[in-house]
Design a protein around this nucleic acid. Structure first.
Lengths: 174, 174
DNA sequence: TCTGTTATTCAGTCTGTACTGAACTAACCG
DNA sequence: CGGTTAGTTCAGTACAGACTGAATAACAGA
């Protein structure tokens, strides 16, 4: 993995751009892409060189990937350095990321909506209208949460089964 | 809607923050929040004043919301100005946003993955490994696309039905 | 304990995006 | 046609977050 092939470059650069569009740091995404494609764990030094970023940047980015649980440090015999490897199960990887983003962003929004509904003064002008809007939005977030809870409990394969069931339902209905 | 209640402020500010975390411009998100809560369409001028941003900023932000199809201009009798209103159907709103983001971000990624797989030279060292990784990732994106296609065709209510079906399946399986 | 290597932290800098305000265009009206 | 109001464009600026590099900490081996 010392020198990148054109293909690897393509993948890594694209992944980096994708990341930024979804609020994920470009370097973090690139490092993840690199580790995902790498057949063996890589030390920070090599990651830094390969992607032309500072060692310190690699350090913090790796830390973030570890927080998400999609990258972990492993030890290589006869080498003091930490080597990092990415999880290879794509479905599990996305499940982990989605779970955390839900916790960080969806859950607080749900709380905010509940707080707003609780605080809403019925005597205030337009309270009914506001309540309707907030409840509609809250309902959506509750449903998303429900969907997520179910996904979380289902084994990976079952999601695909559900996909197929959806196809059937659609065919019958149409 | 001249002066915001504490509750409206809370909602709008939170929505703005949420936006930034998902790669959506803060002002765009705030304007959307404001219009969503507003019982009547608002002119750009009023939006600018209420949120303390420049008129020009409102102009470009509204344009973006219009591109997404979740805000539209309406005319009020006896007023030359354009007034803007948000779609109120939350499910439809998210469906639209997701559809566009899929088109802008998921689809290009799928293409990139296909291109990579096509370009992959089997003679190159480690080609088998790379192919496995790329195919796993491509499979995921194909599944997401399939899921999205089905969601798109189902009427809103059916998604909730599927949610319930999922619950049953889980109970049986568990 | 000292030495060399690896990892982390952090103050300062850089960069890309958001935002402003001024200039411009378009539409309407007397 | 002027004058007025609404809407858009764009060059320049401001700002938040990303990134660097130097300092520091942690640690293994001698």
């Amino acid at each position: 993995m010392a020198e990148l092939t054109g293909l690897q470059k393509q993948y890594i650069l694209h992944w980096g751009e994708m990341g930024t569009k979804w609020g994920i740091n470009r370097t973090v995404a690139q490092i993840h892409a690199l580790l995902y494609l790498s057949p063996k764990p890589l030390p920070a030094e090599e990651i830094a060189e390969t992607l032309s970023v500072a060692r310190s940047n690699v350090s913090t980015s790796i830390r973030e990937l570890e927080t998400w649980g999609i990258v972990r440090a492993v030890h290589v015999l006869g080498d003091r350095r930490e080597h990092y490897e990415s999880m290879k199960d794509v479905w599990e990887m996305f499940r982990l990321v989605i779970e955390q983003r839900k916790r960080r962003e969806i859950d607080p929004t749900r709380e905010m909506l509940r707080r707003c509904l609780a605080e809403l003064d019925p005597k205030e002008a337009g309270a009914d209208y506001t309540r309707d809007r907030l409840e509609a939005m809250a309902g959506f977030f509750e449903a998303v949460t429900e969907l997520h809870d179910q996904m979380k409990r289902l084994p990976t394969g079952t999601v695909r089964k559900l996909l197929r069931m959806g196809t059937k339902m659609r065919k019958k209905a149409g």
